[in-house]
């Protein structure tokens, strides 16, 4: 959950970010507040899962799927992963930088409660 100071796009960091994203946007106490943010959750998480699956698959290809997330994959793994990602249609979530752009899909609604 915390940044351990690893390489900027390490697999562990990417997985941690996706797991955090999933929890912070889709789970946790829901408060009908003065202002509630609605994000395109489904799309984001769908993309997140695809990414996660491709990174687990990459780990399996390289190491029989036994590698714990704390061990960063060799460089080939990252290349494999990103080439998969770029083949996906509507991809805007394949790295940290473009993940930030998803805030463009946010909508704010006041629900007056």
């Amino acid at each position: 959950m915390r940044d351990n100071g690893g390489p900027a796009y390490s697999r562990e960091r990417q997985i941690t970010l996706l797991e955090t994203l999933d929890r912070l946007l889709n789970r946790g106490v829901v408060v009908a507040g003065d202002m509630t943010l609605s994000v395109a959750n489904v799309d984001l998480i769908y993309l997140g899962l695809r990414l996660l699956v491709s990174s687990v698959e990459t780990a399996r290809l390289l190491g029989g799927g036994q590698r714990p997330p704390s061990e960063p994959p060799p460089e080939e793994g990252l290349r494999e992963q990103s080439s998969r990602s770029t083949r996906r249609p509507n991809n805007h979530c394949n790295d940290r930088t473009s993940l930030g752009n998803t805030s463009g899909t946010e909508g704010v609604r006041g629900n007056g409660e």
Binding site: R2, G28, G100
Partner: peptide, 29 residues
């Protein structure tokens, strides 16, 4: 919704959780 801001929210929750139970609230509430 980016790594820096998600991490800040998460860090606050985790720091509090180290000392006592907490019910985490959804991001951007």
């Amino acid at each position: 919704v980016d790594e820096a801001h998600l991490t800040l929210h998460e860090t606050v929750v985790e720091e509090v959780m180290a000392a006592r139970p907490i019910l985490p609230i959804r991001f951007n509430t």
